[in-house]
Amino acid sequence: MVTLEHYLILSGFMFVTGVVGVLTRRNAIVVFMSIELMLNSANLTFVAYSSFLGNVIGQLFVFFVMAVAAAEAAVGLAILIAIYRNKATLNIDEINILKW
C-alpha cells in the first residue's frame, strides 16, 4: 500500500539531494541541475497532494511551475554562456565580481 507519506518522503529526498548539489558542487551547470531537481521535487509534492485530495488545481500549478522552470533554464543557461565567454570558467568560486 503506497500512501501519500511515501510520495512526500520521496520528494523530500529529492529536494535534499538538490540542496546537497547546490552546497557542495562548484560547477555552475551542476548547481543549475540541482535547482531543477528541487523544482521537480516540489512539483511531485504538488501532484501527490492534488491526487490524494482529489483536486485538479494542483496539477494546474505544476504546469505553471514547469513553464517558469523552462524560462529559468533558457535565461540561466544564456547567462552561464555569457559568463563563460567573458571569464572562461564556470567555477562559481571564481565568479565573484559582485563581491567587494
Binding site: F32, N43, V47, Q59, M66, A69, Y84
Partner: peptide, 30 residues
C-alpha cells in the same frame, strides 16, 4: 502512478525534450 497523465506528458515534453536539450547545449557550448 498518481493518475496525472497530462502532467506526465508535459513533464516528458518540457523537461526531457526542452530543458535537458538546452542543458546539453550548455555543457557543449561552454
Amino acid at each position: 502512478l498518481l493518475s496525472a497523465d497530462f502532467i506526465a506528458i508535459v513533464q516528458l515534453i518540457v523537461y526531457v525534450g526542452g530543458i535537458l536539450i538546452v542543458l546539453i547545449f550548455g555543457v557543449m557550448l561552454t
